[in-house]
Design a protein around this nucleic acid. Sequence first.
DNA 1: TTTATTAGTAATAATATATTTACTAAAAGG
DNA 2: CCTTTTAGTAAATATATTATTACTAATAAA
Lengths: 143, 143
Amino acid sequence: MNQEIAKEYIALIPNLFESFSELNKGASELTHMQNHVIEYIYMQQKSLNLKEISSGLNVAKQQLTNIISELVSTGYLIKETDKKDKRAILISLSAKGTKTQEEKWKAIYQKFSENLSKLNEEDRRDLQFALHKVNLLLNKMED
Amino acid sequence: MNQEIAKEYIALIPNLFESFSELNKGASELTHMQNHVIEYIYMQQKSLNLKEISSGLNVAKQQLTNIISELVSTGYLIKETDKKDKRAILISLSAKGTKTQEEKWKAIYQKFSENLSKLNEEDRRDLQFALHKVNLLLNKMED
DNA sequence: TTTATTAGTAATAATATATTTACTAAAAGG
DNA sequence: CCTTTTAGTAAATATATTATTACTAATAAA
């Protein structure tokens, strides 16, 4: 059975690919890496130190020093020293940073909502249930 | 109802994020863009011309000229002129190109399969059904 | 059959990203 | 304490990506 499930999971990834790539289309004033960093922090929903961002995104910490200090000075990120570990610095989104992310997701949200009209009511009901179940179980798996 | 569905859809994206980013971790000998191009062609499951890749990836066609000719000379891609439109060139994966992609997906597949053991049998059955349904309906939506 | 579009190429310059090496200061471990 | 590890910074270099402009040749459209 596991094989069947894994196949369905794998099939899901390309299905979301388009929405995913669209996240960074809106060609803001930010570079790819800057976007990438902001997006990652937004998804993690908490403050992160440089090391966590580095390993989460697979980017050398030396690179992040510049990228993040740029994002701090342009007002997207906020730095504060970690009181539990004085070597570390916790990085989080500012209101401005959060807003840019919310707008990107909103665009995907709207496009998807429009496409939903191609399904009839029964299919939509099924889709809702199935999506809910998938999210629930994927979360359960990651714990 | 559409709002609820869209919310579940949006929630799904971060859920797949990790698997998604992992696709390009294996730090092959290829650059990001080269990987990106190969990945895109692999996902589309057919030959594409330069224009289609350009608009699909939101990358200027001028950039692709170099990227693709490099990938052709290193044996990942194959070029052939489109007989229906003599201006165009159809680009597809070589056996070597296909193999690299298959290996990346296989790694994701295996990791996911291992994680599945965290679910009990009933949950796994539910997950399989729900994933199948989601894929089915998302495909239906895109037609 | 002209004219306008479209697919792709080419070369250059401007930016961005990646890699390497070396450094400070706090923490962890003995 | 003393040593080693860890988080972050810094600067230089190499490589990759993006943007701009200009060009050829095939196709579409007037």
